[in-house]
């Protein structure tokens, strides 16, 4: 079994009103150091035995469903699970 950690984030060119709202709250709380916040999604995908190449499998799933590449970028980390 392999655990894949996938991060889906809005592209740089896309405004993130949710992130801006959270940033506004933090600044209001006194954390004036905070310059920007981008909110994304984190997915843990556990993959069983497969004959397919893991990278191409994960990329395919990301591009077909998990991310919308018109507005989102994705990256992932592979972790061997027990």
């Amino acid at each position: 079994m392999t655990k894949v950690k996938i991060y889906v984030t809005l592209r740089e060119s896309v405004l993130d009103p949710q992130g801006s709202a959270v940033q506004g709250s933090l600044v209001k709380m006194g954390y004036n150091e905070v310059q920007d916040i981008r909110i994304g999604k984190y997915l843990e995908v556990v993959i069983g035995d497969t004959e397919r190449d893991l990278d191409s499998l994960v990329k395919e799933m990301c591009e077909k469903l998990l991310a919308n590449t018109v507005i989102e970028d994705y990256r992932y980390e592979v972790e061997e699970a027990n």
């Binding site: 405004l15 009103p17 949710q18 709202a21 919308n68 018109v70 507005i71």
Partner: peptide
């Protein structure tokens, strides 16, 4: 159709 629909600007 091209493009995508994002969260409303005012949330």
């Amino acid at each position: 159709l091209p493009g995508a629909l994002l969260r409303n600007k005012n949330l």
